[in-house]
Design a protein around this nucleic acid. Structure first.
Lengths: 218, 218
DNA sequence: GCGGTGCTGGCAGCTTGTTGCCGACGTTGG
DNA sequence: CCAACGTCGGCAACAAGCTGCCAGCACCGC
């Protein structure tokens, strides 16, 4: 990654880590928009980066925006809570579609690309106008987003039954049979399904299946 | 992995490779049942293993059973064709639910477990009765399965439109709007959807979404 | 005890999805 | 040219899914 380049393509998590470690160590402002914890898994895997974040807690403003589906996975929800507690991160939830992005000090933007051959590619952008554009988009999303506490209480409830509902949905079981299996009325079962779809931000059951699989919920 | 153990748990693809390389080098019969190419990606990543398989072509009987959804991905379909051509593998398609399995000479069975923290665990079984049980299950599936050629011609057609249909489905677009977008009548669009669901072995759209995502089709 | 609140589940109306039927049309082979 | 075949698309019947409505019930606070 050369200093003169405005956009650099980075392949794979390891390379991204290697090339951005210094940013995590020096930035005073880190902002992240993610559909799942996947992108931030990079920073969790690297133990030294986690320790670094804790160490720098008072020196860096960390903001993260997730989609509500993230909170459906108990493990991910705990990860979110831990991030807030240990890193002093401010966390909000949005129902808008997100492109996965990390911003450092309004100077560097990392945009996630597609997964190819099991490796995800990232664009590392330093070109000022582009970074500014991405930043303003993030700020707009941030302003419209809701504090995680508002969502978490509600989703914590949905989470209780979600694994069983998702399991039955994933097996292709019809609503009536699924409701019977869970000992619910079909109206209530459908309420639970509708809540899940809302949390997943899905408008159809196919889309919900895709999202649920993406988030590792099924 | 000790000789005396009847079942050994192996974590991650690399470890599986390291511990089973000798099996690929010595076995005269290899049988694999897989939901996707994922499990066999292990052997593709290792170049020396690929070369080994080519070298041993006349010395080892290779049989693989996949689910039809695998053929929906052009890349995977080409991988299947290449395996057949280069390794002389016999390949069949089944619509039954499969547990991902590799068998070596009716003596060793490898069963795939769940993915944990991004690493998949495998059970490596050498206990004779268990291996025999797994082998007989594989043989039953093999007997009932259909030669890949029978499926491939049909699925090759479905594959042409599949990316666009899957994309619209994944966006939650309703059938009528999706049909219009593709310039089809809604009856035809629904035929295409039904074919896809058949190929994916899904009974509901949620399940289809999960499967499609699993196979990397969306 | 009583009123307020929230959840459940049955019912019903509506939308969306599933699939058979059939006429129309294009293609192919004799 | 004609017959056979396969696909498309409109129509319709039916099933599955979506959601509002409301009575019944449990719980809670005064």
């Amino acid at each position: 990654m050369q200093t003169g380049e405005a956009v650099t393509i980075v392949h794979g998590d390891e390379e991204l880590l290697a090339r951005t470690r210094h940013l995590f160590a020096t930035a005073t402002e880190i902002a992240c928009a993610a559909n799942s914890l996947g992108m931030w898994a990079v920073t969790h895997v690297a133990d030294d980066l986690d320790a670094l974040a804790r160490e720098r807690r008072g020196q860096v403003r960390v903001r993260k925006v997730f989609r509500p589906g993230v909170l459906l996975d108990p493990v991910a929800a705990r990860g979110v809570a831990r991030t807030r507690e240990h890193h002093g991160a401010q966390i909000r939830i949005t129902t808008d579609e997100l492109n996965e992005t990390i911003l450092f000090d309004r100077r560097v933007a990392i945009l996630a690309g597609d997964v190819r051959a099991g490796r995800r590619s990232y664009s590392v952008v330093t070109q000022p106008e582009t970074v500014q554009g991405v930043t303003s988009l993030f700020e707009a999303v941030w302003r419209a987003a809701t504090d995680v506490d508002v969502y978490d209480a509600r989703i914590a409830e949905i989470r209780l039954l979600a694994p069983r509902v998702l399991d039955l949905l994933g097996q292709g079981v019809k609503d009536e049979a699924a409701a019977r299996t869970l000992g619910l009325g079909v109206r209530t079962y459908r309420r639970r399904v509708a809540e899940l779809m809302d949390a997943l931000g899905a408008e159809s059951r196919f889309q919900a299946g895709v999202r649920a699989r993406e988030l590792g919920l099924v």
